[in-house]
Write a protein that binds this DNA or RNA. Structure first.
Lengths: 201, 201, 201, 201
DNA sequence: TATGAATGAGGTTTCATTCAT
DNA sequence: TATGAATGAAACCTCATTCAT
């Protein structure tokens, strides 16, 4: 995916993400909007994509891939589980700061096609993404086990659910800040880590 | 909300939910579809609602209210935290069985307006819903404390996040069953409860 | 026309005229509006008329007939040409005071079907109206001749055009008062009479 | 107004006028009709105008402007009042020949918004038109005074009403030819001129 | 290759008319 | 007889897509 994208395609992807980050609803975006955001003509969009649905789907997937790759690098760069987890929480916060991010939906039960139905036509890409997410999760769990912070008595499924739970708890906090006016992000991060340790320690 | 709805309104609400439960995307539903699903004429829809967006928004909110009320009753009917929690997990599973349920979105960070943008015009109703959800959460936590299963040393925020986390972990399992072909629902429920206890016990 | 109208019909006619006098555009009036103005149900309108167009057409004609009958009586009641002409000008002014009167259109070249296309389906009634208007005109001219104010040297056509002209001049004044802020109605009436005399004296 | 109109706009204006001259009622014209008359697609209409009402209003005003400009030129080209007045009567006749002309409404008391309600949203253009009409009237009166055919003893208002009256008398004749089967257009024109002279000579 | 003017299918909405009560 | 809830035909308008330039 990294390769094989024409310069114009990237411009379109970037334009579209600008729109989505600005809070635009993918179902309500017009081809006109996409062309404008990319700084190209409306017809040009169709020189690179077969339909509006395809542009939007591919743009979302392209950027998710980018974000996940960057995410993995930022996480891998840290040495300890605590730091890695902290970076992951930061990433979640950054993404949820986007009005309707994409990453947060990966975490929820709904999955990405709840975000944009037509993504389900991109099964292959979706599978790749899922794998990338799992790779990150696995990376964390493995590290935790290596550090002896996570004990290996529990099943892999249990460990996964524990991690998901800690992340989802934090996601919920970020998404509903108004419910917790007195809680700082730092506190919430600590709580999430504490939950992780209690579950897996 | 329960009261004050004409018979036809309810018919429209029910028809619409039938569509949504069948996996229809609210953004792609046509007024024609709504009328057909309700077994009425297209024009009749406009005798009761001002626009398509209004019908869909109000139908979603109406049914969420119903579901939450029923949920609370089913939960309240149980005596122990373990049973209450189990019922809540069952509810989540039932809802996520719906192709794109509504309840699961309440749990995710995104919130309901990620499900249907135009809901944000129904602020009042949305606030009511949020309160109902919190009431359920509170009910569980209180019971847990009364049963001495949940200790009161941790902050309320911590308790909330722990519960959210356990629920979200299970939601993730239900939404991504294909990732865990060997795990039964019963096992997943047990894991979720175990997570809850470890976090709050 | 005077007879043969059910009480409800009259109510509908009166309601409609209330709307028209209020400035409503006959093309934009809804059956709902008509029913409301008449204080009856929408369905009832169709117990008395075959279509919306028919109601409106017949209402207009009914009221024009009434107005013309009253007009003739008011004019006939006066003794001298001067007085009769003055009353006619008063009538014109009253009618034009109505936002979009009907009488003024009789005077213009366009004719009544410029006011409401569907009137042309009521040929018979329209002919009756035209005759009533001519009767009034003739009544004035005859009186003028009897009073020796109008000389009989000129052709009947000439006399008609002269009268029409004087009336139209005044109509124009009434319809475009803003063009003549310094001219009083009384002055305009005098000018109109002067024009008549000059033309026919 | 002549300038600043895209080629397509003019095509739409011309198509619409074709419809109106053919006797179409502006309230009953469909966007489809407009597009067909202009030989373009339905959507294209909306590339140039915001709504059906706007197209129709602007088309009417555009053509009235054109007609009035041409009218003024034809009148100004003549040397004597008699000839100028004769040309004006010819113009009236030509316009009234159109089933529901526009010019005739300028002459009647009703004014243009009786022709098409939505014109009243184009106040600026309407004012321009009124001025053009007055300019023509003034041009005639001035010439008459210069030729000593019109004496200057009477007030300007009187002169205006006299001219309006003569024109309206003729308009009435043209609009109601069936009432005067034995009168030729030439005779009617002579009568109108005679009325003018009697009133103003 | 890139464009945006043009298109018309298809959507939402209105409202005259019907008909069960 | 009188009603107004219900209907769906038909209107307006949008916007994805095409294609001549």
């Amino acid at each position: 995916m990294a390769a094989g994208h024409a310069e114009k395609e990237i411009a379109i992807f970037n334009g579209l993400m600008k729109l989505l980050r600005r809070g635009a609803n993918p179902y309500l975006i017009k081809v006109q909007d996409i062309a404008e955001a990319a700084g190209i003509g409306k017809g040009t969009v169709y020189d690179y994509f077969a339909s509006k649905e395809e542009v939007i789907s591919k743009a979302i997937l392209y950027h998710l891939n980018q974000e996940l790759k960057a995410a993995f690098q930022r996480i891998a760069a840290k040495k300890t589980l605590r730091e890695k987890f902290s970076v992951l929480l930061d990433l979640i916060q950054e993404c949820l700061g986007d009005n309707r991010s994409t990453v947060n939906l990966l975490l929820s039960g709904g999955g990405l096609h709840n975000f944009y139905t037509f993504l389900k036509e991109q099964q292959q890409e979706l599978a790749q993404l899922k794998e990338k997410v799992l790779k990150i999760i696995d990376h964390l769990l493995e590290h935790g086990r290596a550090e002896k912070i996570i004990n290996s008595r529990e099943s892999e499924f249990y460990q996964l659910m524990a991690l998901q739970g800690a992340l989802a708890g934090f996601s919920h906090f970020v998404g509903q800040r108004d419910l917790y006016p007195d809680v700082t992000v730092e506190e919430a991060k600590n709580v999430a880590y504490k939950l992780l340790l209690k579950a897996l320690g």
